[in-house]
Design a protein around this nucleic acid. Structure first.
Lengths: 188, 188
DNA sequence: AAACGGCGGAACGCAACCGTTACGTCGTAG
DNA sequence: CTACGACGTAACGGTTGCGTTCCGCCGTTT
């Protein structure tokens, strides 16, 4: 039976190593060193780097985001943006996510894994959120959920993961207001 | 005197190699092989990988985008988005940009170079574009150019570089309309 | 008490790449 | 015509990582 404490140490080491050097430069040996573990312990669990990283990452990424329903679209949106912005400002996540996204662009297996872990949820969440708003009459019927995702997550991701400008609460409110305006203005 | 044709071959090789394997895995030897050139020819021009990549990339990135002025903000925006979407759908660019962005998150020198090459222009472009619109009375006075950048480029980048969903002209129009609505709705 | 199995450590052969050097070729400038 | 210098090739010693193997240790199971 594999020892659980050692598995945990490896998982942590992988996440930290991934954040520091990225997938491309991540080596099994460095993970073992960092975890204070023999390489054998790693190869006993996974057969190579890709499999190891994918299992560990998707395990974390699959943790579901609780779906907000604050009673109004503006409220839902602001809450969602708050949650996402917190996640994207997390030290480790803010390094790993862009790195794996870039890697996904050239490795189909990574793309598939991330898609399964992240985008399916996103899609469902956006559809529900938009659906609620349409039912309430806050958004025009026929509002495109995909467009909504782009408008809700795009600016946040851009700001936090690409520009890496710090962001305050007042900015978040401003952004939420803008996105609400955007969706109302979009011709369905 | 260094031979120009060889410099060109190296530059091309670097861009292609960068697109295929990313910065982290890019090796001088692979670049030399790909360019059909000796390693010596490379080391005669640059002293290491970072310097080489930064010089080549920033050289390309600094090519200025002509600033649109179509007479209306909606027109400016749609033209800008069209240009950006074409750039982000380019085979090489769509691989290299996210990769270097991720790398920039962990290498200050890369961050600085990209910032100098890209963000300064972006900022200037956004300020002019928003300024024109405010003068024309199309956007409220005090509209935040930074917010405008996030709203204009964020969704496009998200869609093209992260989601990697193909996009059509009608989507682009829809998006431009939404962003215009967003900026009008944003409280200054 | 004995058997089992996961553990760390060390070493294996192999491959890739680093940055540098020495050499012989070839085009061009003087 | 000669001298220079950029070129490709090949080799250098050194480093790093791969994936595997063997060892002795030690806690658990039986």
């Amino acid at each position: 039976m594999l020892r659980g404490d050692i598995t945990v140490a490896i998982r942590n080491a992988v996440m930290n190593e991934l954040a520091e050097v990225g997938y491309g430069r991540l080596s099994i040996e460095a993970v073992a060193r960092r975890a204070g573990v023999g390489k054998t312990a790693i190869y006993r669990r996974w057969s190579n780097k890709l499999e190891m990283v994918m299992e560990i990452v998707s395990d974390i990424a699959e943790r579901k985001v609780p779906l907000p329903d604050t009673g109004s679209f503006a409220g839902d949106l602001q809450l969602l943006m708050f949650i996402v912005s917190k996640a994207l400002q997390h030290r480790i996540a803010s390094q790993i996510i862009p790195d794996l996204m870039a890697e996904a662009a050239r490795n189909p297996q990574i793309a598939e894994t991330l898609q399964g872990a992240l985008r399916t949820q996103q899609q469902a969440l956006a559809e529900k959120l938009v659906g609620q708003a349409v039912t309430r009459g806050e958004l025009p019927e026929g509002t495109d959920p995909k467009l909504a995702v782009d408008l809700m997550l795009g600016p946040l991701y851009w700001r936090l993961a690409i520009s890496r400008d710090p962001i305050g609460d007042e900015y978040l409110e401003q952004l939420a207001a803008a996105v609400t305006g955007a969706l109302k203005a979009a011709r369905p």
